[in-house]
Every structure is written in structure tokens, then in C-alpha cells.
Design a protein around this nucleic acid. Structure first.
Lengths: 206, 206
DNA sequence: AATAAAATAGTACATTTGGCCTAAATTTAC
DNA sequence: GTAAATTTAGGCCAAATGTACTATTTTATT
């Protein structure tokens, strides 16, 4: 990726975050970058191209940083750390999440990428939960599909917390990430065994 | 409310649902209604006025229909029925939920109305949970603020399931409401006592 | 240094959109 | 039946936006 393009993307990202994707025009981005409208178009023919490039950046970061947390001592710790990192990265690119339904509607490629990624994540959660039940950290299902349902709820939460934050949290609040990580971890608590809870407390309150 | 205005609102609602609020212009709505652009503006000076009117309709319906479920025999039943009705109404006006962050950002009045309503709902949930623990249908909190966290997650889910559905579910799927009601009810299951679970199964699988 | 490629700016155009004003038509009220 | 009001339509304007084309400047390559 070109140095110049990265600067332009950074500016676009900041504007999108502050005003929303729909409210920012290519001309505004160009003005903010101190270049001409035509020049911006030379680099990114349309707003969609900018969004795709930013989305690509996000994916790269997510993959890169996730490698650091492969070796977790137990499932709950891995869950906690990958959540923390994932949420932090996502928050940087929160304009994507706030506009998610629109962006994906307008963009078949991103939509498919997104669906693939979500599928991977769902599988990952299923494996982690499986590990946790094997190690007697989480209890067995009380009914068929209980944990599948949990994962569905988790997915919705993961996609939605940023939009929710935009509605409920004041812009000055800079503890939002912690707040939503805590809420996220709360999803698992009622499924934990006694042993699971003591491990959980240990991980969570280091 | 004027008869003519109601027709116009219905048309706007359908267009918003199909294409999204941002993508529909006043001229399109007017064209669809078979009237002139100026005439539509005579009734609704701006798109915002249409959105506010539709939001008002939604509130009226929600209040009206909720009166029918005041007398529930026990907390879980009340929760289930009010969820069912609430979700059904909300789905009719799903364009509001899909665009929620944008609409509320552009509209201080709606934003405040929304926050007030969410506060009421949170209180309602707290009361229902209190009732359920008193009647030994739900267990006591395992830690301070456990149920407050649950309610927060429930709120996010309630605000987000429609947007999530727009991403994950195919448009032909007309069982989405049932799907998300089921997921919603799953929030409570791990907190239920043995007695609570038998009551739950009774309510849920009538 | 010369030449090709890449980057930048300027301009112009068509389209869309919200807003505004005026005039005609229709309905309502007396 | 007539006057007043409400409702409707048409036209016009200004701003914004995406898009395309051309010309100039800068950078890279040899």
C-alpha cells in the first residue's frame, strides 16, 4: 500500500468516524487532505473503494494481532484476550460497524467476506466452549442447541455493541471498550461451573 | 391523523423498508403515491417529519397492544408475550431499527424519546426479574450487578436483532421474528431455577 | 538529460435533492 | 351560491455530488 494512500485512508477514516459515512463526500475528504477532488479520485475512484480499502486494513490488523494470542493457557483466558484485542481494533474502525447494514447492502464483496468471517468466529467460539466443557470449566448443555443459541447471541452483541454505544454512551466516555468487554464476558458467567468461576475471576480480575 | 397522511406514511414506510431511509427521496415517495413533489411537502415539510410521524405511529401501536398483556399469570409468561408483541410491531417498522444510530443522531427529540423508553423497559425487566427471583423461578445473583448486566445485554440485543437480521437472514425468510424471540428467551434460561425451567417450558412450548 | 509514467489540478456537465413561490383546483363553511 | 380554506401542481433555483476530460506538474527510469 502506497504511503500517500494510507494518509488519505486515515483522513477518510477520521471523517467517517466523526460524521458518518453517508455524510462525508469525496470532496470533503480531498479538502481535508489538502488535495484536489480529482486527485483523490485518481487514487480512489469512489467512496466504495475507500471503504473497501479501510475494511481491508481492519482485516489485516485483526489477523496480525490475533496471532499474538494463540497460546492461551486455558479457554477462558483465550476468549478474554481475543475479545479485548478484537474490540479495540473494531472500535478504531467503528464507522464500519455503525453503518454495517448499509455498507454490506451496497457491497456484495464485503458482505460475503463478512459472512465468512462470522462463520469462522462462530466455529472458534464453539471450539472454545467445547474445550471449556471438557475441562469442566463450563457445564454441559441443558438442552440441544443451547450453546449454539449462546453463540448466536454473542454474534449479535459483537456486531451491535458499537452502534449501541453510539446511541447510549456520551462521546466523552473513553471507557466504552472496557464496559462492553465486561458485558461480553458476562455472557459466559451463568454457564460456568464452580471451577470455571474461580478461573474466570482469576483471568478477569488478574 | 388525516386519512391522506396515513396513506402517505404507509407508502413511505414501505419504501424505507425496502430501500433504506437514506436512499429514498421525497420525490420518490410522492411519485409512488401518485402526487406531486410539492404536494407531499405540503403534508410533510421534510423527510424528518415523515420519520417522526412513523415513529409516533409505532409508539401508539406499542402502547395500545401492550395493554392486552398486562395480566400475565407469572413473570416468564409476561416476558414472553410482551417480547412477542414488541418484536412483531418493531419488525413492521424495521427501517427505524436498521437506521437507528443515524436517525437518532439527526434527531434530538427522537433520541430523547428513545432513551426514556429504554429506561422504562430496563426498569420493567428489573421488576420482572425481581418477581421471578421472589417466586423462585430465577436464582439469586451470583455477584453484585449480575442482572443489571443481563439487562444491558438484553437491551443491546433488542435494539440490534433487526439490523442483524438484515445482514444474516435471506429476505425470503419469514420466520425471522420467531427465530429472534427464541434467541431472546434463551437469555433467561441459564438463570432459571429447576422450577423456573419447568414453567419456562410450559410457557414457551404451550 | 531525455523520456515515460504517475500524480495533481482545473473545469465543465448532468443529475439529484431540498426548498420556495405562485397559481389553479378542490373542498369546506356560512 | 359564494367566499374562504385547504389541497394540489408546476416551475424555478441553489447546492451538492459523481463523473469525465484535458492540461500541467512531478517523479521515476534509463
Amino acid at each position: 500500500m502506497n504511503k500517500k494512500k494510507e494518509i488519505l485512508l486515515k483522513i477518510a477514516q477520521l471523517l467517517f468516524t466523526e460524521f458518518g459515512v453517508a455524510e462525508v463526500s469525496l470532496r470533503q475528504i480531498a479538502a481535508e487532505a489538502g488535495i484536489s477532488h480529482s486527485n483523490l479520485i485518481y487514487h480512489f475512484p469512489s467512496k466504495n473503494d475507500i471503504i473497501i480499502a479501510l475494511h481491508h486494513q481492519l482485516m489485516e490488523k485483526a489477523i496480525g494481532l490475533n496471532k499474538q494470542v494463540q497460546a492461551a493457557s486455558h479457554p477462558l483466558q483465550g476468549l478474554y484476550h481475543s475479545t479485548k484485542i478484537g474490540f479495540t481494533i473494531l472500535y478504531e474502525y467503528r464507522f464500519l460497524m455503525i453503518d454495517l447494514p448499509h455498507i454490506l447492502r451496497d457491497n456484495k464483496i464485503l458482505h460475503n467476506t463478512f459472512l465468512d468471517l462470522e462463520k469462522l468466529r462462530a466455529d472458534m467460539y464453539l471450539i472454545e466452549i467445547q474445550k471449556a466443557t471438557d475441562q469442566n470449566l463450563m457445564r454441559q448443555e441443558l438442552y440441544q442447541g443451547e450453546y449454539t443459541g449462546l453463540i448466536e447471541r454473542i454474534k449479535i452483541f459483537s456486531d451491535a455493541w458499537i452502534a449501541s454505544s453510539a446511541i447510549y454512551d456520551s462521546p466523552e466516555n473513553n471507557n466504552v471498550i472496557e464496559k462492553y468487554i465486561k458485558l461480553f464476558m458476562g455472557f459466559f458467567y451463568p454457564y460456568l461451573t464452580d471451577m470455571g468461576r474461580s478461573v474466570f475471576d482469576e483471568v478477569y480480575f488478574q
